[in-house]
Amino acid sequence: MGAAEAFDREVRLFVYRHFVDEGEPPTAAQVADRLGKSTEDVEASFRRLEAAHVLVFAPGTLNIWMANPLCAFPTTFRVTTERGSWWGTCVWDAFGIPAMLDEDAAIATSCPDCSEPMEFRLEGGSLTVDDGVAHFAVPARRWWDNIGYT
């Protein structure tokens, strides 16, 4: 593993752990401070991680928007475990949060058509739902054409 790859791995892990612990992603300056590196080095790592589709930034910035399955901005998917609450980018990511944390969770969302609230519960790795269906509008090969829309 090269030096840049090893550093990107360290940055990625720090971003995810911070996001889980604090409920929001770190800035490049925060990562730099904690890892004892320059902000420029972390920003270069951020750009490599973006190019590799590991992190997504708010347009025109290096502010983390998504470290999937976690989303920095409010969405229609709120995931709550004993450890905290996070926004999931979509239903796939909302389910991904308890999977990543290996914790039970309640997922609150609403039907986009009628706005009726819906709640899913994950307990011991089993999903409890009354009804519902998942829908993906964008075919797999076009997901990264516009990941925000996807």
């Binding site: 796939w92 389910f95 991904g96 999977a99 990543m100 269906v133 998942a134 829908h135």
Partner: peptide
């Protein structure tokens, strides 16, 4: 696009993100 069950969506989340940390 494609519709599928919430159980499949959960399985997708589990398989995709289970090792993300």
């Amino acid at each position: 696009g494609a519709s599928f069950s919430l159980e499949q969506a959960w399985e997708l989340g589990r398989r995709w993100y289970g090792d993300k940390l």
